[in-house]
């Protein structure tokens, strides 16, 4: 595998990054952001949707804040997994991502913005050529989706970022910066149900941090990850739950690794507001499971992955009560 050539830009401030992006957009040039590169670079080596320019966010100090209420997008997962300044749930969740070696480069921002995955797509160029490409990287052929054929509009590649589930369950807000300024939103609103678009980021816009309200420190949380091996493997399903002990209504659940976006499960919780015993927790977990759909594009079967959502959710809740 040979890395395709691209021009690497290395801004040292948010302002400079925005300016660089604006210039490239103005001159009609395509580009990608990169932070740790542990997702982007493997995809580039496979020649998947490569761009002539890459802007690295790794050198921006402003994006490396670390506290209970604010974590910069540029913070490495290896820092999170040992940090006592952040919420313990994030510390545990970070430690479950990829491998210790990868976590030394991987960032929180990159994890949130992780490209969606599919076993028709995360393949070498020769491989993809031999299936005559797919919709998400069609190389100008107008190829169809290989998972749900004959529709040609939607990509259902799976979002397999780990951190999103825990961030959702802790009620994180996400801050985006771009040529049109700054905006902030609940993290679950950041994602868009489309394996290609993935999230609300506009051209030139990037994630600069996630923040939490003060009450986050009162929350107790747990994250359950389904994977074949206890290292390397992406979540085949993941469920995080947190609450303020004693306050049933404070429960928040986030799931990941099933669909093209991670999900927040406020609606299911509302419908099972009285989740205070074994049976009701079981029912709530079942409801969470029913609310998600899995497709056949990762290593484990979709039927199984979906079924596990209930088990993981129940176990996460059981751990925190």
């Amino acid at each position: 595998m040979l890395m395709p050539a691209f021009e690497l830009h290395k801004p040292v401030s948010i302002e400079e990054a925005v300016a660089l992006a604006r210039d490239l957009i103005d001159s009609g040039q395509e580009f990608d952001w990169v932070s740790g590169g542990t997702d982007l670079i493997p995809n580039y080596k496979w020649h998947i949707n490569t761009k002539p320019h890459v802007i690295s966010l790794a050198g921006i100090e402003e994006m490396k804040s670390l506290s209970m209420t604010e974590i910069g997008a540029g913070v490495k997962l290896s820092q999170l997994e040992v940090s006592d300044e952040i919420h313990p749930l994030l510390k545990t969740a970070a430690g479950k991502v990829a491998s210790s070696l990868i976590r030394k480069s991987a960032t929180l921002g990159g994890n949130i913005c992780l490209d969606t995955r599919c076993f028709w797509y995360n393949q070498s160029e020769d491989w993809r050529r031999s299936i005559e490409w797919c919709h998400k990287a069609d190389c100008g052929t107008g190829a169809d989706c290989r998972v749900i054929p004959n529709q040609n509009t939607l990509c259902v590649a799976t979002y397999q970022g780990d951190m999103a589930a825990s961030l959702i369950s802790l009620g994180a807000m996400i801050t985006l910066v771009g040529p049109d300024g700054i905006r902030e939103m609940p993290i679950e609103d950041f994602f868009e149900l489309d394996g290609m678009k993935k999230n609300v980021l506009q051209k030139g816009e990037f994630v600069c941090k996630v923040t939490f309200s003060e009450e986050v420190s009162k929350r107790v949380g747990a994250y359950k990850k389904l994977r074949v091996r206890e290292t390397w493997d992406f979540p085949e399903a993941g469920s995080a739950a947190s609450w303020i002990p004693g306050d049933l209504s404070s429960l928040r659940i986030g799931t990941t690794g099933i669909e093209s976006i991670p999900r927040s499960h406020c609606k299911e919780i509302e419908q099972h507001a009285n989740w205070n015993d074994e049976d009701s927790i079981f029912e709530l977990s079942q409801a969470v499971q029913k609310s998600v759909k899995a497709v056949n594009n990762t290593i484990l079967s979709p039927r199984y992955r979906k079924a596990m959502v209930s088990v993981l959710t129940r176990r996460a809740i059981e751990e925190i009560i």
Binding site: F119, Q123, S124, W127, S130, I131, R146, V228, R229, E230, T231, W232, D233, I299
Partner: peptide, 28 residues
């Protein structure tokens, strides 16, 4: 426990790489 060459419905080997061809790690 985990290793298999997965041939998909089109006959393609779906996991010709060491991430998805799952050799046990030290944890296993």
């Amino acid at each position: 426990l985990s290793e298999k060459m997965v041939y998909g419905r089109t006959g393609h080997l779906q996991n010709a790489n060491l991430l998805q061809y799952q050799i046990p790690s030290v944890h296993e």
